[in-house]
Amino acid sequence: MSPIKKIAILTSGGDAPGMNAAIRAAVRGAIFNKLEVMGSIRGYQGLIDNNLVPMDSQSVSNIIQQGGTILKSARSKQFLTPEGRQIAYDNLKKNKIDALVVIGGDGTFTGARVFSGEHNIPIVGIPGTIDNDLYGTDYTIGYDTALNTVVEAVDKIRDTASAHSRLFFIEVMGRDAGFLALSSAIASGAETVLVPEINTGYKKLDDFLKNSFKKQKSSSIVLVAEGDKLSGGAIKIAERVNKEHPDYDARVTILGHIQRGGSPSGMDRVMASRMGVSAIEALLDDQKSVMIGMVNGEIVYVPFNQALKNKKPLPPKQLELIDILSI
């Protein structure tokens, strides 16, 4: 028999569509297995503040379709200190909590790994980030919804681009990873993409603009990941293009936080539901310091060390696909 009788659930870092679906699944999965559940309001800071609330099946009713997170999120500077983590652990013990389910990205899992190592508490992570940059899983919760949000926006921008024969640089989220930008570029028919992982510099874009203009395309769309340091971001690169390629009328759209909001897609809801229940099953199976991942449609357990140490590579075939389809 597992010694776990009571768990706490928290969300941390940037919100992602589908987090509520994961909370719902974890709560109901725990109740199904006769566990008590509490929710930590505002992530790790909630553990420090002892802001823990009981959760039951009714408390997660009618949230599967909601974006954001009902448990709120925060980045806790206090939790970065050993003293802060000790307070958090003391509050867990005070509330007789035996294990944690944490939903978030690499920062969330880094904190979980340290916390689990210091205090020997079982923690299972559920990957929730629109960046889709966590090693060991094909997809993260929120990525599919964000992708659809970007594609819908780009489709609308292309209407204006075509009407005025303009070049648009569209900046999407992706501070350290270009997965969202790359997939969005393919799905929206963009002419090229700039991502932080690929050191292409300005030359490739310069060559593309010369060739594209010669073909007299009615419009051109370039997706730029916000983390693309070489170009300096969409605004700076548009300024340079307007100076060096006056035949183009380059404009910029920064999509910003609309990518993180909205009702989750069907794919994100199903994936979050599977991962939420699997997180409970992992705890009952005496797993600790692991992330729930999905590879080829199957649930896998990925150690935090592995998920955080390894960098997830961009799919080379997708990069090649951009070049093929932009001719």
Results as ranks from 00 to 15, higher is better:
Ile4Lys: 12
Lys203Gly: 07
Val300Leu: 14
Gly174Asp: 01
Val290Tyr: 13
Gly227Glu: 02
Ala279Glu: 03
Met291Lys: 02
Val224Cys: 06
Gly104Ala: 15
Leu308Ala: 07
Leu47Ala: 14
Lys229Cys: 10
Phe213Ile: 10
Asp207Pro: 08
Pro17His: 00
Ala8Met: 11
Gly84Pro: 11
Val252Asn: 09
Asp98Gly: 14
Asp159Glu: 15
Phe168Pro: 04
Leu308Trp: 02
Ser278Arg: 09
Glu244Cys: 15
Phe304Ser: 06
Leu314Val: 12
Val124Tyr: 06
Val172Asp: 08
Phe304Trp: 06
Ser289Lys: 04
Ala272Arg: 03
Gly262Lys: 12
Leu167Pro: 12
Arg85Thr: 05
Ile258Phe: 06
Ile31Tyr: 08
Ile324Trp: 15
Glu83Asp: 04
Asp144Leu: 04
Leu284Trp: 05
Ala234Asn: 01
Val27Ala: 10
Ala282Pro: 11
Met55Thr: 10
Ala25His: 05
Gly227Tyr: 04
Ser184Lys: 05
Thr110Pro: 03
Gly261Val: 00
Leu80Asp: 03
Asp323Ile: 10
Met1Lys: 11
Val300Asn: 09
Leu223Met: 08
Pro82Asn: 00
Glu36Thr: 09
Ala8Val: 14
Val53Cys: 13
Leu100Cys: 05
Pro122Thr: 01
Ala161Leu: 04
Val295Arg: 12
Val252Ala: 14
Gln318Thr: 05
Asp206Met: 04
